[in-house]
Write a protein that binds this DNA or RNA. Structure first.
Length: 559
RNA sequence: GCGCCCGUAGCUCAGUGGAUAGAGCGCUGCCCUCCGGAGGCAGAAGUCGCAGGUUCGAAUCCUGCCGGGCGCGCCA
């Protein structure tokens, strides 16, 4: 059963009734306080019942509130329903007490009309939050793929997820900065340079080097490559690779505010400064010729090396310095999106964060699981070393940006994902992304057909005024719209963009049912309310467009 | 061996304490004088991995097993 409660951080804004459902929840809490006689401490929710005979909304509040009281849940439910009825007045048709102690609410047309009126007034901002408690300044790092090769499908999932998450967080009212950490230092860069040097001379790269065909092509683009040394080649190769990566990401509608270079941390002494800082707080010690961070005392399995016995700094040392930099910039929260192969890294990074003086919970490490591409049951292998992989550019060429983003976002980030290329390639009803886009385009066609005059009339009509009785499909569709603010808030707090693919699909289906049952243009002929239906269609269109925008998918006017 | 993630319909997966567990694909059967048929409707299909526990109530929380993926460097 879908829960319609609002997460704590998504309290209704003080500047107006932009969320009718939140108002309903407030009325419920108010009524519960009256019935109980003392302020309530438990979180009360309004659920969406699975069966229509259980009402438009359902609450289990009596079951929760009766604990510790003498009163039976059903008796409490009866009093709660009555108290709620006094608050909602004509917005409530009736309530029923059911099961072990649920109170089921049946709202009136007056409620639905008034709710749509509110949604239509808010327009494209419906579901967004511009103020209120819980707004944070967030620094989100994602992708951060090594600049030694093209963006792969695995990194593409990170890109789609991180970007969509940022869009959602921003829409939910947070201030978001997006950052890409460029691993342009260390052993792999040396191997990259050596591989370029070998290819430039027409030789095979070293055993542990990079063997992809793109390395040869890259070497060919560097002027005078055969005469250059590995370091110089690596420098130029990384520069070219980063340009390509950035272009691919922009093509994928993913934009970063900053590319943060690992090498710059070495160059400007930031790592040394971070080490000094940690030494002052006694988190660092020397042993076996190396310098260690005492992560074992802070939840990690063991201590970790910052400076090798050879004198070289580790990748970890640079990352610690990077996070010291993030911390110094003062965001309320730092979010890193990491690959599944980095989950062993989480404990030491959290330990380092603590050692740096970061607030508990101030660093959030999200682990992305892997992507498998399937094509007619066959799995497409991906290994950057062997050069046998599908790049994001190839994926986009194959199935398009919209399908690629939708399918990569469709599943929870912590589950492995199978992407069926054959299905994603379909431009028919079998493909959910086209289904949703089709619904959007169809509404656009209907509104075009309605014409300027009817649209203007609908825009200026008093939607909340009494009118023709609403069809069940109309009420169901308004209710689906009302869930949008909750879905946005939940997607944000749970870092779960995939919820919006489900929501968009359900909203599109709700519109299809409405379209089947109710004429929009010419509604009067069947006793319907044309202005209401036009406004409803517009609101659905706007909410579909917003949902797709948060996913980074286009909402076409025509297909 | 230890750690993280996962196990829900034939397939891919939603569903982080509520009533008879859902969607998409696939399958079966219907519906185009009707605002976009690139669509819609109906149906078949499930021991929610297994076993205990907590609870008025568990796919959901706890414990133990089983199965799969990924990790466990003075690599990045």
């Amino acid at each position: 059963m879908a829960s319609l409660d609002t997460p704590e951080s998504a309290a209704p804004t003080p500047n107006g009734p932009i969320d009718p459902l939140a108002e309903l929840r407030l009325a419920l809490a108010d009524a519960a306080t009256e019935v109980r006689g003392t302020p309530i401490t438990v979180e009360l929710r309004l659920d969406r019942p699975k069966r229509s005979e259980f009402g438009d909304f359902s609450s289990n509040a009596p079951l929760l509130l009766s604990s510790g009281l003498d009163e039976q849940p059903r008796a409490l439910a009866e009093r709660l329903g009555a108290a709620l009825g006094r608050r909602l007045g004509p917005d409530l048709d009736r309530y029923e007490v059911a099961g072990p102690g649920f109170v089921n609410l049946f709202l009136s047309d007056r409620f639905w009309r008034s709710a749509l009126s509110t949604i239509a007034t808010v327009g494209g901002d419906f579901g967004s939050r511009v103020a209120g408690a819980g707004v944070e300044r967030l620094l989100v790092e994602f992708v951060s793929a090594n600049p030694t090769g093209p963006i792969t499908v695995a990194a593409a999932r990170h890109a789609a997820y991180g970007d969509s998450l940022c869009r959602i967080l921003a829409f939910a009212g947070h201030a978001v900065e997006r950052e890409y950490y460029v691993n342009d230092a260390g052993g792999q860069i040396r191997r990259f340079g050596e591989s370029l040097a070998a290819r430039a001379r027409g030789e095979e790269p070293p055993e542990d080097g990079y063997h992809g065909a793109y390395v040869t092509a890259l070497a060919a683009r560097i002027a005078g490559a055969p005469e250059l040394g590995p370091d110089e080649l690596a420098d130029q190769g990384i520069e070219l690779m980063l340009e390509a990566v950035s272009a691919t990401l922009e093509r994928f509608r993913v934009h970063f505010d900053r590319f943060f270079s690992e090498r710059s941390l070495h160059a400007d002494g930031a790592i040394e400064r971070a080490l000094e800082l940690l030494s002052e707080s006694d988190h660092v010690y020397a042993s076996e010729g190396a310098t260690w961070l005492r992560t074992g005392d802070l939840g990690d399995d063991k201590d970790r090396v910052l400076r090798r016995s050879t004198g070289e700094l580790t990748y970890f040392a640079a990352d610690v310095a990077y996070h010291a930099d993030k911390l110094r910039r003062g965001p309320d929260r730092v979010i890193d999106v990491l690959g599944a192969d980095h989950h062993g890294y989480v404990a030491r990074m959290q330990a380092a964060w603590q050692a740096l003086g970061g607030a508990p919970g101030g660093l959030e490490l999200l682990i992305m699981q892997l992507v498998n591409l399937t094509e007619a049951g066959r799995r497409v292998a991906m290994s950057k070393r062997e050069g046998e992989f599908v790049t994001l550019d190839e994926l986009i060429d194959d199935i398009g940006v919209d399908a690629a983003r939708w399918f990569l976002l469709q599943r929870s980030h912590d589950t492995t994902l199978d992407l069926d290329l054959a299905l994603a390639r379909e431009q028919t009803q079998e493909n959910p992304v086209y289904y949703v886009q089709y619904a959007h385009a169809r509404i656009a066609a209907i509104l075009r057909r309605a014409g300027e005059e009817r649209r203007t009339a609908a825009a200026s009509a008093d939607l909340a005024a009494a009118g023709a009785p609403l069809h069940p499909s109309e009420r169901a569709l308004v209710r689906r719209l009302l869930e949008f603010p909750y879905e946005v808030a939940t997607s944000a707090t749970r870092r779960a963009p995939h919820r919006l693919t489900t929501y968009a699909l359900e909203l599109a289906q709700g519109f299809s049912a409405f379209y089947r049952d109710c004429r929009v243009v010419g509604a009067k002929e069947e006793g319907g309310d044309e202005a209401f239906r036009i406004a409803l269609s517009r609101s659905v269109q706007a909410t579909l467009a917003r949902s797709l925008d948060l996913l980074g998918v286009e909402a076409p006017e025509a297909m």
